[in-house]
Simulated assay, not measured.
Amino acid sequence: MKGALTLFVCGLVLASCAGLLPAQEDLGEIQKRSYSFKDAGKDIEYALYVPSSYKKDKPAPLLVLLHGLGSNPQQVIRYQGVTAEAEKRGYIVVAPFGYNERGWYGSQGKGKGRFGVRAGDPENLGELSEKDVLNVLGIVRKELNVNSSRIYLAGHSMGGGGTIHLGAAYSDIWAALVPMSPAYMGSHDILEKIKAPMMVVTGDKDTTVPVQMVRPFARRMKETNSKHVYKEIAGGNHGTTFYRNPKLMTEVFDFLDGYGLQVEEEDALPQEPLRIFTNKSGRKIEARIVSSEGTKVTIARKDGKAFTIALSSLSEADQDYIQTWIAESATEP
């Protein structure tokens, strides 16, 4: 329970943050936020996206998104497809700064990283960078109704290395991980500490984080857990392959949608009751409704594994049940 305890403590020591619960006009928009980071002695920025479908009485999945070296929260949250998929699927997305644009999220130790360091950076830059991610996660979980079983972590380049590091250090938090072109330079033994399914994505023409650096990690990863996925994009580079690739973001969110944690009963948030759903072929599954979007509905089994299916594929009784649920949800405050 290391991660959960850390988040609890972080929540207690947060002094203040700019803004309270998102106003109705903020839903469906990227928000630029900040909070007072006492250990750093200054305000730290983060970016937040809350989908227009968000309701305070219904827990929503959360994606924590980490930027690369020299980048910032406002840039990474604007990667093409990120907020579009979040809006479609009902995800909250938050992008911490990690103290600054070169903190490495603790993946290179508690001190200054080996790359991008500047004069004036604090000696404990890595420690502050890691704490900032946890602080922001704590703020979002305190302000918004986050589904504790569906908290995900993803990042690009330096953020990909941070995803691997934090995915191992706080393994009880994350339902799934997506390091993209990960600039991870530590031991591959870290994979033994990662519990969550992981999707590693890289391009075979990446000259910043060469594929030759990622492939050995991916091989070890597949040996460690059969649920891990490695995607190597032919002709893919370090930049536009990720930030101008909405199709890839659809694949990333499809991967995330497939996984959830089992939460302890005392930590569980209110959920819809389990029900036996039957499709038109007679196949049955015990699950609960998570969300609906247009002609599709997302349901989740007791183990947290989620499925998005066409409403028309279900029995008439199930369709009636879901339509009633949608109608009741629309009238709730």
Results as ranks from 00 to 15, higher is better:
residue 195 K to S: 14
residue 196 A to M: 06
residue 151 I to L: 03
residue 191 L to T: 10
residue 186 G to N: 06
residue 187 S to T: 14
residue 171 S to L: 00
residue 134 L to W: 05
residue 185 M to W: 12
residue 117 V to W: 03
residue 157 S to T: 08
residue 110 K to I: 12
residue 129 S to Q: 11
residue 177 L to Y: 01
residue 121 D to R: 06
residue 145 N to I: 00
residue 129 S to K: 08
residue 186 G to Y: 03
residue 142 K to G: 08
residue 147 N to A: 15
residue 156 H to I: 07
residue 164 I to R: 05
residue 147 N to M: 10
residue 177 L to T: 00
residue 132 D to H: 13
residue 135 N to M: 12
residue 142 K to N: 14
residue 132 D to Q: 11
residue 135 N to H: 15
residue 179 P to H: 11
residue 120 G to M: 11
residue 195 K to M: 06
residue 137 L to Y: 08
residue 106 G to D: 10
residue 134 L to T: 10
residue 189 D to I: 01
residue 111 G to T: 13
residue 127 E to W: 13
residue 122 P to R: 11
residue 159 G to R: 07
residue 163 T to R: 03
residue 172 D to A: 05
residue 140 V to A: 04
residue 199 M to S: 01
residue 132 D to W: 08
residue 111 G to S: 15
residue 187 S to N: 13
residue 167 G to Q: 09
residue 159 G to K: 07
residue 184 Y to T: 06
residue 113 G to F: 05
residue 159 G to W: 07
residue 131 K to Y: 10
residue 109 G to L: 11
residue 120 G to Y: 11
residue 110 K to E: 15
residue 114 R to L: 12
residue 196 A to E: 08
residue 115 F to Y: 15
residue 155 G to Q: 05
residue 190 I to M: 04
residue 124 N to A: 11
residue 141 R to G: 02
residue 193 K to R: 15
residue 199 M to R: 07
residue 166 L to H: 07
residue 122 P to I: 12
residue 197 P to C: 01
residue 172 D to S: 13
residue 137 L to E: 13
residue 144 L to G: 06
residue 114 R to M: 08
residue 108 Q to A: 04
residue 136 V to C: 02
residue 174 W to C: 02
residue 121 D to N: 12
residue 128 L to Q: 12
residue 183 A to D: 15
residue 174 W to E: 01
